[in-house]
Amino acid sequence: MSRYIVGVIVAFGLNAFVPNIAQALQGQTNSFITEQIEQQQALARASAEGEQWFKRMQEALNSLNYRASFIAMQPSGLQAYRWLHSVTPAGNHIEVIEGLNGPHNQAIRINSQVTYLSSVSDAYSVLSNTLSSPILSGLYGEYSAISHAYNVVAVGGDRVVDRDAQHLRIIPHARDRYLYSVWVDRETGLLLGVNTYLPSGDIVEQVLLTSIHVQAEPLTELEQLEQQWDNLPTNQGPVATPATATKWQFGWLPPGFRLERQQRVRVAMNGPVAEHFMFSDGMAKFSVYISEGNDQVVPVQYENLMSMVSVKHNNYAVTAVGKIPLKIAQQVTAAVRLTP
């Protein structure tokens, strides 16, 4: 009996080695081609696996009842947050992200209404499917929203926050922008960490969960919140200021970026009146502001996790700002033209 089992194991082991042996016996040219094919196959497998994991994470983030806390490391330092999510029996999706340092501030999302509460200012609500937090909104969204510009590749296992994690890399097709690493909990599918890298590979932002708790029933505090829904500030409704200027031409945009919206705004803090454009490739987003006929905007460049470039053309100024490398902002602003 025992001899039989050993035999099976040996046969199994030999099987695994057979392709390698065969490959070693082939000529050099042949083996090069085989390697290429194998690499491509491996990449295709890793991408398919990555897609599955990404979809599983997106599903988990939007459907599970969880209570977590995380820290975010940014150029400015460390910040701590609490993160809650539940789907209530009434079918409402409730999510809360709360800063744990400094003055109280909270973002509450009930379905597609997001309310920002702060101890130092009045509360207000906006319509949005994701709340604005260090957790990139692209990670909550559909895979198809990022797949035109990024490959999601499963690169193996890891241990994060003492959990068995799947490491995914989100790699842009165009190597001119940030790259991301994401760790997904293999048991629940939840997000355990996100790193953002410069195209050079240097890390610029890091989010790491420090505790995570998943339960079958909705979190009580979120159910209480649901009861108080009527007390939350009501949405004033986005009063769309129609885009007035249709005369602007973007001579260059980084591949994969699409225009999300356009509107007329007065820039915060008594800034100039400007035509605002929001571009996104699913993960990264940047704004372009074009203001005319004033000298309020002076040429300036700023490079950090968030970059900014202002340039002056003849009688208008163009500013690009967002979590993108400086080079993209430079190229976009330089290529904006007034349609003749």
Partner: peptide
């Protein structure tokens, strides 16, 4: 100026509702 544009971009990010896009913009 840097502050103003960065703050405004942050505020814009909070607001995801897509709006009507002008046909004549040429991205």
């Amino acid at each position: 100026q840097v502050q103003a544009f960065m703050v405004d971009h942050q505020l814009q990010l909070q607001w995801h509702t897509p709006m009507t896009i002008s046909e004549q913009v040429k991205p």
